[in-house]
Structures are given as C-alpha cells and as structure tokens.
Design a protein around this nucleic acid. Structure first.
Length: 558
RNA sequence: GGGUCAUUACCUCAGUUGGAUAGAGGACUCGGCUACGAACCGAGGUGUCGGGGGUUCGAAUCCCUCAUGACUCACCA
C-alpha cells in the first residue's frame, strides 16, 4: 500500500471512529502539498469537506480529528490543525524513507480494484479514406492513443478502434476524382477533390480498371498511408472497422432500423424514412433513409455502428472534431431508443488546431488544396515533440501549433525539458557505476545499491544531516513523486492526459532543482550517496512510467 | 434565433471532488560550469482570472446574465 493510501485510510478510520459515519472508500479524503513549506509536508481539507455532512464547524472537526490522528501517526508524522479547517502533517524521516522504498520497484502503478474494471471502447481518428491526415486528425490520434494507454495502465480492458467511413458519398467523390486522373481526363473540378491532393495515390495501377476498381485500390493505398503515418506518431489500433463491410453489408444496419421500427419510432414521408426524433425529445425529426437513392444517412449508420460498439463494450468514448457536435444530440436520443444508456457514451469534441509558421497562421483548406498534413509536420518536428505539443493543451481549447516553436531544441520546448531530466538522471546512475567499472575509487556497485535500497533505515540517509536547501529540494521531489498515481487516476477520470503531462513537467522541474544543490556521487559520504541514488532511481521510475504511458520516448542519452 | 466550447501575466498555456499568498514556460535583467549532463539552476515583477450579479465560512472553479470569438443547428459526411 502506498503511503498516501495508508494515510488516507487512517484519516478515514479516525472520522468513522469519532462520528460513526459511513465513508465508502478513501478516495473521498484528499491529500495535498501545502503551498507554503512552513505549514508542513502534506495536508488535508477533509474537515472542510465533511463539515456539511457532519453539521459541525470545520475547525471543531479538525481539532477532533487532529487529536485522534496524533496517536495513530506518532511514528510517522506530527499533526496539527489550523483555521478554517486544515490539518497539516509534518513527516518524519521514517515516512520519507517509506515513500522512497515504494518507488524502488519499477512496478509503481496502482491499478483500479477489480470491481471497478471496465470494458472500454475508444474510437478516434476515423478519418475518411479519401486523403491525407491533417492536424485535426493528428490531435485526435495523439489524444486518443494517450487515453487508451492511460486506461490500459490502470488495468481496464480497452479496445481502440478506427472507423473507416468508406460507405458514403465521399467514396463516390473519391472514385470520380481518381478516375479523372487515371483516365487522363480534364477535371470538371465540380465535386471532385483537388488533383494535387490525391494524384500521388493514383499510381502503379494496372490498366483497364473500372471506376469501382480504381476507387477500391486508391482507397487501400490511402488507408495504408494513414496507417503508416499514425504508426509514426506511435498510434496503433486494436481494430480497424469498415463502415461498408461491417455495418452496411453485414446486416447490422438493417437490424438496427428494424429495431427502431419495432419500437414504433419510424415513419415514411416524401419517399424517405424518418426517425420520430421529436418523440424522443429532439427538436425535429431526422431522416434515416434518403428518398433520392434509398441509402442510409450518416445518423442511421452511426446508430448502427454504436449499437455494434455497445455489444462489445460497456463504456464508449468517441473523439470527434468540434465540427461534429451537431450530431451528438440525435445520436444519443437514438441510442436511448435502442435501449442503450447514452450516459455510457462520452463524446469528446476536439477544438480546432491552428498552424502557425514564421509568426503567421497557415490557413488550411481541403478545397483549395492547401492542406497541411500530419506527415509534413511530423517530418519537421519528430514524434515526441508532436505528441507533447498536441497533449499540452486541453481538448476544449483551440490549439496553436507553432512549428517554429515546436522545432526549437531548447527549454521553450517542453518535451526537451522532460527528456533532459530523464537523461540527466540516467547519466548520474550510469556514471556512478562506470567509475566502479573503471576500477577507480569504487564507492558503489549495482548490487550494493540494490541491497542498500531494500532496507528502509538506509533510505533515511537522504534526509538527515544535510543542510536546509538540500533537505527542502529532496523532500519537494519525493513528496511530489508520491502523487503519480493520483495524477494518473485524475487523467483517466477527467479524460485529460494533459494532467499527467503537466505533472511530469513539474517533477522534471523538481528534479532539476534537486540536482543543483544535491550532489549524489560523493565518495566522502557513502550512505548519503546511496540514498540519493535511490531517490534518483525513484524519479526515473516515475518519469519512465509516465512517458511510456503518454507514448513519448524516455531517452537515457540525448 | 437555439446549442456546444472558449476568454487567466506582454506571448503560449496549466490550474487536481470549491480551500491557505492564482502558477509554469517563453520574452526581459542579473548571478551560477577546472563541477554527478549549463538542453540546467537561482534571483528579480508582471494579474479588475472577459464585465456584472448570485450561492457560502471561502469562487478562476458552481448558478444566472451580458460582451467577444470559434464551431454547430441538412435527406452532406
């Protein structure tokens, strides 16, 4: 059990003992680092939070709680309370050593308890197979893959899926556009994609193909390219699902329509088939089958697809561009009519990505052919910087992707700050052993360090007999490391990998601040050296795990 | 007209179920390498958290309202 969990449990038990109330789990107890070092090392606002429930003044609760905790925590912390209802903990060396000990093991992630495990399907990117991926897709790809990874890390069963929209009008448009090029005809430019966007896919085709065959072959080439680019961003999917084959041709679509009919929600009018959406609470009825060609609308396909998804997972997460937000209401109402709980579907709407280059916005338009692709940007900045930039802004906020900034290899670029901290920490550990290998004044070896790190009493050496600056820097780092699991959990809860990324930047900063005054390799003081190497090891463990989850590389050498 | 999202330092952005004096990076000034990696550290000041109202012990955070901006409200996908 982690130190936080232990402390929270003790607080919870104290509350239960004093007030005989029910507290289901320790997650309702918060722990924070006080914003002023003098208050203590950790604090909780539990008295403020429970004041309403307990109908007692927060200060009184704090006093009672404090008295109770003083006894149970006497080995690991001093406890005091202060108005309006904070409880502050000043940790003893033993407590710090206990935290440090937990991080010696590479396996630091606390998975969710088995009863909270969920089957989650995350659908993202889902670009039309009609051209290159643009930066909007890139944002979805990075964010989606990070979310998948976060949920997997916590122990959920996750399925990541790319929905190939290969069933509608846009495929015909692709076919027309590709055929124009294939047959060397003059483009009408009406209702066709600009030649420069797709001509690179209309190559190496055998002679004598029909328009339908051309469409299929070009689509496959485009898909292959999309897969390749996504892989270059470290984005891979468990499942690629074709709208045409698996939703339309498989009969799922017809079944779904029939189900709606059975529920008496469908009628015919003006040659079209309508969903009686008003009855479900929508502002107007919606067409399911078009009068013109008796083909399914996007809504119909989407309902069928989501029914198919719900058959495979209990919780669905979609990442859509903000321009699709109009679909949200009717989809959810339709799902309700299909006896699926819309609350189990969360749609994240990703706001626009604007590209800046040389201080000017690069306007993107598919129509005019001025589309900046993921491939181009990726080539310029690399996958790690690309991912970090995409993750650094909350989904709900417009993202400004400044190529000049992202390309810079200095501290204005957050990815280097993170990676440098990791490489620096790795360098110290490497160096500590290298000296040993060279047969110079060996003060440690890997096995010696391992043995040392197993004894909790040894680990206290990092916190005793050192000056104030070194002590504060060491404590600041370690205390924040202990929040790793909470940040991971929050990222999942808020569907916001940004939380985790910010946290990693923070501990990178704390590591750098620790590094400056705290010399680790010091043959004069072997115990301190070894204990500090353990702290550095702990930092590396957290950073490595965090970067791996976000699919950003953790280089030992830069 | 209806809906969704945003508005935080000069710039780009964070801000953990409402908590102690609102943060980071860049930009600007100064200091720190014969030094475990200076791609780093330390110091310096910057805010009507878009405006206004409300909820309460306490609001950047919750509610209402106004302003500004983006997106959206099709038998397109």
């Amino acid at each position: 059990m982690s130190f936080h969990k232990k402390l929270k449990t003790l607080i919870k038990q104290a509350l239960i003992k004093i007030y005989s109330i029910e507290i289901p789990n320790e997650n309702s107890i918060n722990l924070e680092i006080p914003n002023n070092y003098n208050y203590g090392d950790l604090c909780t606002t539990a008295p403020l939070i429970f004041a309403k429930t307990l109908k007692q003044s927060p200060l009184k609760i704090a006093e009672n709680l404090c008295n109770e905790l003083k006894e149970s925590l006497k080995d690991i912390a001093e406890v005091n309370f202060v108005a309006p209802g904070f409880i502050n903990f000043k940790l003893k060396e033993k407590a710090f050593a206990e935290i440090l000990l937990k991080f010696q093991d590479n396996n630091i992630i606390e998975k969710v308890p088995s009863e909270e495990k969920q089957q989650i399907l995350i659908e993202y990117v889902s670009a039309n197979p009609t051209g290159d991926l643009h930066l909007g897709h890139g944002r979805g790809a990075v964010l989606g893959s990070a979310l998948v990874s976060i949920f997997k890390a916590l122990g959920h069963n996750v399925l990541s899926e790319f929905y190939i929209n290969d069933a509608g009008e846009q495929m015909l448009k692709l076919g027309r556009s590709a055929s124009t090029i294939y047959f060397g005809k003059e483009s009408s430019n009406e209702d066709e994609y600009p030649k420069e966007l797709i001509e690179k896919y209309v190559v190496d085709l055998s002679a004598g193909l029909s328009e339908e065959e051309i469409t299929i072959q070009v689509k496959e080439k485009i898909l292959e390219k999309q897969k390749q680019i996504l892989k270059a961003c470290k984005v891979e999917f468990d499942s690629w699902i074709s709208e045409k084959q698996e939703i339309h041709d498989s009969g799922i679509l017809d079944q779904t329509l029939q189900e709606l009919k059975n529920n008496d929600l469908v009628y015919e009018k003006d040659g079209a088939t309508w969903l009686n959406a008003i009855k479900l609470g929508d502002q107007r009825d919606r067409v399911l089958i078009k009068s013109e060609n008796q083909k399914a609308t996007y809504l119909m396909g989407d309902l069928a697809y989501h029914k198919h998804k719900f058959a495979r997972a209990e919780k669905l997460i979609n990442l859509w561009g903000a321009d699709h937000q109009g679909q949200d209401v009717s989809l959810k109402l339709g799902l309700k009519a299909l006896n699926k709980n819309p609350e189990n579907l969360t749609v994240l709407f990703l706001q626009l990505v604007s590209l800046f280059k040389d201080n000017e916005e690069v306007k993107m338009s598919k129509r005019s052919g001025t589309l900046i692709t993921v491939e181009e940007v990726l080539e310029e900045v690399g996958a790690d910087a690309f991912r970090t930039t995409m993750l650094n802004t909350h989904v709900n906020n417009r993202l400004i992707f400044d190529v000049n900034l992202v390309k810079k290899k200095d501290d204005s670029n957050p990815v280097f700050y993170l990676q440098y901290a990791f490489a620096r920490a790795s360098g110290i550990l490497r160096r500590a052993f290298e000296d040993n290998f060279k047969g110079e004044k060996a003060f440690t070896s890997l096995t010696e360090l391992e043995e040392f790190s197993k004894d909790i009493n040894n680990l206290t050496f990092a916190f005793i007999n050192i000056n104030e600056n070194e002590l504060i820097a060491s404590k600041n780092l370690l205390l924040r490391l202990e929040f790793f699991n909470q940040e991971l959990y929050n990222s999942a809860k808020n569907l916001n990998p940004c939380n985790l990324l910010n946290y990693l930047s923070e501990i990178a900063g704390l590591f750098h601040s620790f590094y400056a005054p705290c010399k680790a390799i010091n043959p004069e003081n072997k115990n301190l050296s070894l204990a500090r190497l353990c702290l550095i090891q702990a930092f590396r463990n957290v950073m490595k795990n965090g970067l791996e989850i976000l699919l950003i590389s953790a280089p030992e050498i830069m």
